[in-house]
């Protein structure tokens, strides 16, 4: 690891000021991706601004059907939230599939979404649930947030503070995990929301998480696993790597979509 300077922020304002005054700095929350990346010298931030001790950033609140999850809430807390489980168990299920118990105790939803790893689980949920990404300076709709692999609408020094969404009528998540890393080789989150059916795919797209309008249309007319069984996805827009070819992933999108719908029933 290259040398770095550590700063512990106690408020959102302090963190943003610290980040803005260090061009080569990075926010660190759970650090489950960033510290590992720094150890491999693939990242070398001059400064780390630690968000883990900002109390406002942590916690889950459910009022009626309205859900708010603080950005620094660890995966273990999302997986284990009884309040969230009553309105959106699919999100608890997703959080419980990330990494392993120790990683889930540190890694946070905000960190995962801000990083926008093309194989991370959370981006698919945020997109399918039509969540609002709340930052220190504005609110961003999920459809406008994910711009490509590791690329988001976040500006320099902008920090995610929370996620908000209305609990869907139905939702499900199914993933085909890499057996070593638990990252999604393909993961599909389906949600029946007030605005219609939404299907978001992670792990497969060559520009990160994406929606499948054909599946959404099919689910809108009939919310059943058979509705998505024959909708194919063009492999040309999917990744090929040592884990799976694009054609294999295209098939996985269909299979995982079916399982996700099945899980939502």
């Amino acid at each position: 690891m290259y040398a770095t300077s550590y700063h512990r922020a106690s408020s959102v304002g302090e963190a943003v000021n610290l980040r803005a005054s260090h061009d080569e700095g990075r926010y660190v929350s759970g650090g489950m991706t960033l510290i590992a990346t720094m150890k491999q010298r693939l990242a070398a931030p001059s400064d780390l601004i630690d968000l883990r001790h900002i109390a406002d950033l942590r916690g889950i609140s459910v009022e009626g059907r309205s859900v708010r999850i603080g950005a620094a809430t660890p995966h273990a807390d999302v997986a284990g939230s009884a309040a969230l489980r009553t309105v959106c168990p699919a999100l608890c299920h997703l959080a419980g599939l990330i990494g392993d118990p120790h990683v889930r105790n540190m890694g946070t939803i905000g960190g995962s979404v801000a990083n926008n790893d093309p194989a991370a689980d959370y981006p698919s949920a945020v997109l399918a649930l039509n969540a609002t990404v709340v930052t220190d300076r504005r609110e961003i709709a999920a459809d406008d947030f994910f711009l490509g692999m590791f690329d988001t609408a976040l500006e320099e020094a902008e920090m995610i503070t929370a996620f908000r969404f209305e609990a869907p009528e139905k939702a499900g998540y199914a993933k085909f995990p890499n057996p070593a890393s638990r990252y999604a080789i393909t993961g599909v989150f389906v949600a029946k929301t007030a605005g219609g059916a939404r299907v978001a795919v992670t792990g497969a797209g060559s520009s990160g998480v994406f929606r499948v309008p054909e599946m959404e249309a099919a689910l809108l007319s009939s919310w059943a696993p058979e509705s998505v069984a024959n909708v194919s996805v063009d492999p040309a827009q999917l990744m090929s790597d040592l884990h799976a070819t694009a054609e294999y992933r295209a098939n996985l999108v269909r299979v995982m979509a079916k399982r996700a719908v099945q899980a939502s029933l």
Binding site: Y6, G31, M32, I35, D50, N105, M106
Partner: peptide, 12 residues
């Protein structure tokens, strides 16, 4: 909470 101490800085 159980954590992996190889992936956390001592200062954190």
């Amino acid at each position: 909470r159980s954590v992996k101490s190889c992936s956390i800085l001592a200062v954190q």
